[in-house]
Design a protein around this nucleic acid. Structure first.
Length: 572
DNA sequence: GCCGTTTTCGGCCCGACTGTTTTCAGTCG
């Protein structure tokens, strides 16, 4: 699948054109296409084979032929030619906050700035102040942007960002005059990684809200502070934007700042086609505000069903909302149990009973113990004897506890030859068998795929754990043919896991959607290694919602008896 | 470069903030 590669080339093409001062609309056309292709669930090569390139939103004749060229040759001639006309390291400067294409182009042409280091040199010199539109403050801003750029770590995981967001929401809610407080942006949409945090408030005293925000604990730097918006950097890691919005336009602002950008463009288009205008202040007809206080009212006025934030990515949700065909999405309250947890038998830190109590406190009716199998020495994988002892302890705990059942399970290794780490007669005695790859990540596509397929075909395997093995920000997915895995899973009634840990979220949203379309059941599991980690189920559910899953697509929405019946029905 | 209930040309989101300006350009979201 070359989607990501192609998207990166198109985006870089846009960068080059932008620095060269090309038409912003042409630049934007490349950017839009890059984003759409990056987001596609389907393989771009397959689309090209079926002559479908121009059916992709934002891809016309010109881009289609560029894409074909890329798929055939690995690059785009026009891009390579343009790239040669600017210094190799100039593009990197676009990532410096506060520094845009115009200024970069100016600095390059006038002062021969061609890299981060020559930029720093130029900023120390005097000549830079002679350039039009550049004064001492601007120089200082760019220097601070360079420091931020050099210390930043890219997009952050939900797990890293949520605590910061929650403490800020709490602070803002306590400020005098503040009414409503919400998080917006990609965090509200629950994207798997977050670039910055957006917070929206209503307030009778805007200045007090801005002041409380810019002086919040952890703020290293105030990037901007006006009458209605402010930006700060927290703990050198994440930028947070605050907007103070009037009550009457709060819903419009929430809609606008939740995005995504592409979703907003579609929504404004719908408004336009009805002779209305939608912006962050409301939905208007001839300057008369028709709606704006709540998101719900705006959707209603546009003749659409309410679109939950997780779906707002321009992946068909706008059309579905117009046609009244949005799916009923799974909710945290639908979840009846957790099907992948560890105890202190392997690498977890809580006892079976502690995990069971935590599950009960979460309102679950079951929780499954899936400690590692014997080959995973690093995680104290269980020998056959220790697994049998654990099964005995689970019986004891179940005899003691009311209201929650501990299921007997394992996370059995799919060994590098494709066999499983326990014999079939042992697996047969367990309620839940999760089979996962923990070794041989570098194997070829055929080999890895073959291993997972043979696990799927084992009649005792119920769920494939973290099917792609990726770790956000640190390890990319192993090279597995997910189409083949999903087809086999559908055929055999094997579920695929949506591992809810914020560094995994594996399967991701798009893959969940594709799996469900093929009739594959998804198990949303936390892979908790301690009793205080069950909360990550919420992240999994949000990711599932982003994948358009309803409760009927999720294995652990089944009651205990239905679950056990489902599991015992796998054809052998 | 794309697109069309404004349909093959002429638009393409637009407002807030900052800094350098004295009426505006660049950046960002």
């Amino acid at each position: 699948m070359k989607n990501k590669e192609l998207a990166a080339v198109l985006d870089s093409f846009a960068d080059v054109l932008e620095i060269k001062g090309e038409s912003p609309f042409r630049v934007n056309a490349y950017r839009r296409a890059a984003r759409t292709i990056d987001d596609l669930a389907a393989d771009i090569e397959r689309i090209a084979e079926e002559d479908g390139l121009q059916k992709i939103q934002g891809v016309g004749k010109g881009l289609a032929s560029s894409i074909e060229e890329f798929l055939a040759t690995g690059t785009i001639r026009g891009y390579e030619d343009e790239k040669k006309t600017i210094p190799r390291k100039l593009l990197e400067l676009l990532s410096v906050p506060g520094l845009g294409p115009k200024t970069i182009g100016l600095l390059w042409k006038e002062l021969d700035v061609r890299s981060l280091s020559s930029l720093k040199r130029a900023l120390r010199g005097k000549k830079v102040l002679d350039l039009p539109g550049i004064g001492p403050k601007k120089v200082e801003n760019i220097q601070s942007g360079i420091r931020a750029y050099e210390s930043r770590s890219g997009r952050l995981t939900l797990g890293a960002v949520l605590p910061i967001a929650e403490s800020l929401l709490e602070r803002m809610a306590g400020v005098e005059g503040v009414g409503r407080v919400d998080v917006a942006g990609s965090l509200r949409r629950s994207r798997e990684t977050i670039g910055d945090i957006d917070i929206l408030v209503t307030s009778r005293k805007a200045k007090a809200a801005i002041d409380a925000f810019t002086s919040a604990p952890g703020v290293n730097e105030v990037l901007a502070a006006g009458r209605t918006k402010a930006s700060v950097r927290i703990e050198d890691a994440v930028q947070v934007d605050l907007r103070v919005v009037p009550e009457a336009s709060y819903g419009a602002a929430l809609l606008y700042f939740t995005g995504s950008k592409d979703h907003n463009v579609r929504m404004r288009g719908i408004a336009q086609s009805r002779g209305m205008k939608l912006n962050e202040y409301g939905l208007f007809k001839n300057d008369r505000r028709l709606a704006g206080k709540t998101e719900e009212a705006i959707f209603k006025r546009l003749g659409m069903a309410y679109i939950p934030p997780e779906l707002r990515e321009d992946r068909g949700e706008v059309e579905a909302a117009l046609d009244g065909e949005l799916p009923e999405l799974v909710e945290l309250g639908d979840i009846r149990g957790d099907l992948h947890c560890h105890s202190d038998y392997s690498d977890g830190v809580s006892t079976i009973e502690e995990m069971a109590q935590a599950a009960k406190a979460s309102g679950y009716s079951y929780i499954s113990m899936n400690d590692h199998s014997r080959s995973l020495g690093i995680a104290h994988g269980l020998t056959v004897e220790r697994l049998e002892r654990q099964m005995g302890e689970i019986d004891e705990v179940n005899a003691r506890l009311r209201g929650v059942t501990v299921l007997k399970g394992t996370e059995v290794d799919i060994l590098s030859d494709g066999s499983l780490d326990y014999p079939d007669d042992l697996l047969e005695r367990l309620d839940i068998v999760v089979a996962s790859v923990h070794s041989g990540f570098q194997q070829s596509r055929d080999k890895i795929t073959g291993r997972i397929l043979s696990a799927i075909r084992n009649p005792h395997v119920d769920i494939i754990g973290h099917p792609t093995g990726r770790l956000l920000g640190s390890r990319s997915a192993y090279d597995v043919d997910l189409d083949a895995v999903m087809e086999a899973a559908a055929e055999t009634g094997t579920a695929l896991e949506l591992n809810a840990h914020y560094e995994r979220l594996d399967l991701n949203d798009q893959n969940c959607r594709r799996a469900a379309e093929l009739g594959v059941m998804i198990a949303i599991s936390t892979d908790s290694h301690a009793e205080d980690q069950l909360w990550t189920m919420g992240l999994g559910v949000k990711t599932a919602r982003r994948g358009w899953l309803g409760p009927e697509n999720v294995l652990n929405t089944l009651s205990k008896s239905k679950l056990l019946r489902y599991l015992s029905n796998k054809p052998s």
